[in-house]
Amino acid sequence: MATILKTNDLTKKYGSKVVVDNLNIEIEEGEIFGLLGPNGAGKSTTMNMICDLVRPTLGNVEFLGKDFRKNRRELIGYLGYIPQELAIHGNLKAWENVELFTSLYGIKGATLKERIDEALSYVGLSEKKNDYARTFSGGMKRRLNIACAIGHHPKMLIFDEPTVGIDPQSRNFILERIKESNKNGATVIYTSHYMEEVEAICTRIAIMDNGKIIATGTSEELKKMVVEDTSSITLEEVFLTLTGKKLRDY
């Protein structure tokens, strides 16, 4: 498979503090790539550099074979970013929120209307399209947040902890949708602190600590790094073994 995203010696320093240190990752087309790490490991900064929200101190991001920063206007439309925060307007109806964000990628008119219906249907909110977002439950807002990022049919979806603070049903629904998006051809980068989620949906996982990737592989491969009998260990135990049990107070 072709590489869709590649980071070349990606580094971010704030003063003398190195937050991301010479990061080299390659994500293949069609993957669901899980990025794990304790708080302060550099996951968010990496995500922000991939989305061009933060400028790298050194290195670059290649997306679809091109330098992302240099070809931003062309490439940004292939990216769908679902932030951890519920980035929706409470005083807009569900369909208006989707319209707002989808239109920013140059989609308009009848196509835009189709995409709005499609995105809302995809996250199970068609019935609620005329309701104000402020009246939604936490799970519904999370789903609407996703609908706002998929309307322009991106090739790559970046999920930053999309299941924080929601009930198991909503979480299950979102995970199923992510898998379906992947089956439909979207490559996914997924960060979460819920190990079982990552284990359930990610085809490859990278564990990050102190700004560096310390392990990469499938769930099974990561477990084998720690013990021979992988049935006796969970991904969380692997994570704790590799990153240590010391509290990270950042």
Binding site: L53, I76, E85, A87, H89, N91, L104
Partner: peptide, 16 residues
């Protein structure tokens, strides 16, 4: 609203 829900950040991941 934009600040509270980091909508500005999301708007910057567009062509605007």
């Amino acid at each position: 609203s934009e600040k509270k829900y980091k909508i500005g950040k999301k708007l910057r991941v567009t062509r605007l």
